[in-house]
């Protein structure tokens, strides 16, 4: 059966649900069956599902943000310029991770190391930058209780920061594998998952940042 980007799954799942399992000819379909619903490695399916859950979490927060904004006591926050730099850093981090992934696919250990290291360091730099932005806001008097816009800003960036930290834990484990000198084939899945996670982090951040800029 031809496999699309989601394997047999995405298109075919409706066909799978149309089967009448009690019919006679259904007894003949054992050997041709692939056990998996999606022709993807299991950890990849797991990560995608997890990120769907995270996406729901952020979507709900953003809908609360949008609903809360219509009340009269909302005063838009003037975002510190540092956030632009942080955004650039996070983009660079994501690119570096992808560079690592490309090298993992080509079997080049050095490239994997370089990409992963740069990606991780940049992610740490992003976190540091976010903390600096917080500090700048606090010192100029924008406390968390002052205004609902502030409260949302701290909560959303904080949650995104926790999301980054979670990624860095996985990154640390992958780095440990690479440093132990494992074969590229053995770390490819980890690098793949990290890169995917990083792109997702970036996507969420861009959505958050855009929404905060626009409101």
């Amino acid at each position: 059966m031809p496999a699309g980007p989601w394997g047999r799954g995405a298109v075919n799942i409706f066909q799978q649900l149309m089967v009448k399992p009690w019919q006679v000819e259904q007894g003949a379909i054992v050997e041709q069956l692939d056990e998996r619903t999606f022709a993807q490695a299991t950890p990849k399916v797991g990560l995608r599902l997890f990120l769907v859950v995270i996406m729901v979490l952020f979507s709900l927060m953003l809908s609360a943000y949008i609903e809360r904004r219509v009340f009269s006591d909302w005063n838009s926050l003037s975002l510190p310029w540092l956030l632009w730099l942080n955004t650039a850093i996070l983009i660079a981090s994501s690119v570096a991770m992808h560079y690592g992934l490309v090298n993992a696919r080509r079997g080049k250990v050095d490239g994997v190391k370089a990409g992963l290291s740069a990606g991780g360091v940049l992610a740490f730099a992003f976190l540091a930058g976010q903390l600096l932005a917080w500090q700048e806001l606090v010192t100029s008097g924008y406390s968390v209780t002052m205004d609902p816009a502030n409260a949302f800003f701290y909560m959303l960036t904080g949650l995104h920061g926790i999301h980054v930290i979670g990624g860095l834990v996985a990154w640390g484990r992958t780095m440990a594998k690479v440093r132990r000198g494992l074969d590229v084939g053995q770390v490819r899945m980890s690098v793949d998952l990290c890169a995917f996670y990083w792109h997702f982090l970036l996507l969420i951040w861009l959505i958050l940042f855009a929404l905060m800029l626009l409101t």
């Binding site: 089967v19 009448k20 399916v45």
Partner: peptide, 23 residues
């Protein structure tokens, strides 16, 4: 959430040969 990811992915990806969704 940790458990739930397991339950869903196990049902989707770890069924034995011949265990179609409709079986």
């Amino acid at each position: 959430t940790m458990g739930g990811l397991n339950y869903v992915v196990t049902v989707l990806q770890a069924r034995t040969r011949g265990m179609t969704l409709m079986r």
